[in-house]
């Protein structure tokens, strides 16, 4: 346990949080703030950028340079911030709909480009703010306000998508495993390159209720029971892993980072930033 006082990073005047009782987003926000505290980033030099949705309300509560952008576009805005001033630490807060539906193109290209952003993707498998519509990560068969008979589509494996697209760091954690999640985020913050931390976050209000999970605790129990550490997952078959959440650091490689490569180009051309 760490003794970092994360309240120094809070805009307490804006509390209580907009999120519903039992929503995982507040837990994930705290895991982020603890991680930022451990790596020692100055809040004046840190920018938190988000898109639209429940998760994207996070920057409003965080005392940093904060930017709440348009739906799906947090990564492009963050890319501009980071390129204009590479000395800034840039954290992107996004959700499953924001990052992999409307913003899917930006997500994969940021991974390909390997630009030094830390993307914390809060995956609650639903569009919460708009009332529980099916998202790109809603499991097959689960109900949503636009999938009354159960979702007939296959969900994205977000971490797999980030890995395939070239992100240099990919990890998956859960709001239940908040301590471990914070450690994955810390590693992501320190990584030079695009980091994606997929954080599974229960949505008791519009997902749980519709899918026969009566209390927030029931949803956290499920997260706990579904979680399989990446090492153990390696020994399991695809069938065994079907409804599981593989947690841990999934990718951690060093490769050229975009803004560093661009700085080399400027130096080569004799320009000075």
């Amino acid at each position: 346990m760490d003794n970092f006082d994360y309240t120094t990073f809070l805009r307490e005047k804006k509390f209580p949080l907009i999120w519903c009782a039992g929503c995982g987003h507040g837990i994930i926000m705290k895991a982020i703030l603890r991680a930022v505290g451990r790596v020692g980033w100055d809040q004046n030099d840190t920018v938190m950028v988000s898109g639209i949705g429940c998760s994207s309300r996070m920057p409003g509560y965080v005392d940093m340079n904060t930017l709440h952008t348009t739906h799906g576009r947090a990564i492009p805005f963050a890319t501009g911030v980071k390129m204009a001033n590479p000395d800034l630490h840039v954290i992107v807060i996004t959700g499953d709909g924001d990052a992999t539906a409307i913003g899917g193109n930006h997500f994969i290209h940021a991974a390909r480009r390997n630009i030094d952003l830390t993307v914390v993707l809060l995956n609650n498998t639903i569009y919460g703010m708009t009332g529980g519509q099916v998202s790109p990560t809603t499991p097959r068969g689960k109900k949503a306000s636009t999938a009354s008979f159960g979702n007939v589509e296959a969900p994205f494996n977000i971490s797999g998508l980030a890995q395939a697209a070239g992100a240099s760091f990919v990890a998956r954690g859960t709001a239940y495993g908040a301590v471990q999640l914070s450690k994955y985020i810390e590693k992501g913050l320190l990584k030079k390159g695009l980091s994606v931390i997929e954080a599974m976050s229960p949505c008791p209000t519009v997902f749980g209720r519709r899918n026969k999970m009566k209390s927030p605790v029931e949803m956290y129990d499920e997260l706990r029971d579904q979680s399989v550490p990446v090492k153990k997952a390696a020994t399991m078959s695809e069938v065994e892993l079907e409804d599981k959440i593989v947690t841990g650091v999934l990718t951690d490689v060093d490769k050229p980072e975009y803004t560093a490569e661009y700085a080399k180009l400027i130096a080569k051309l004799g320009g000075s930033a």
Binding site: V47, V49, F77, T79, G80, V81, K82, A84
Partner: peptide, 13 residues
């Protein structure tokens, strides 16, 4: 869309 977003981000920086 991304191009326009990046421009706004850079200006804010």
């Amino acid at each position: 869309i991304a191009a326009m977003g990046s421009v706004i981000g850079a200006s804010l920086a």
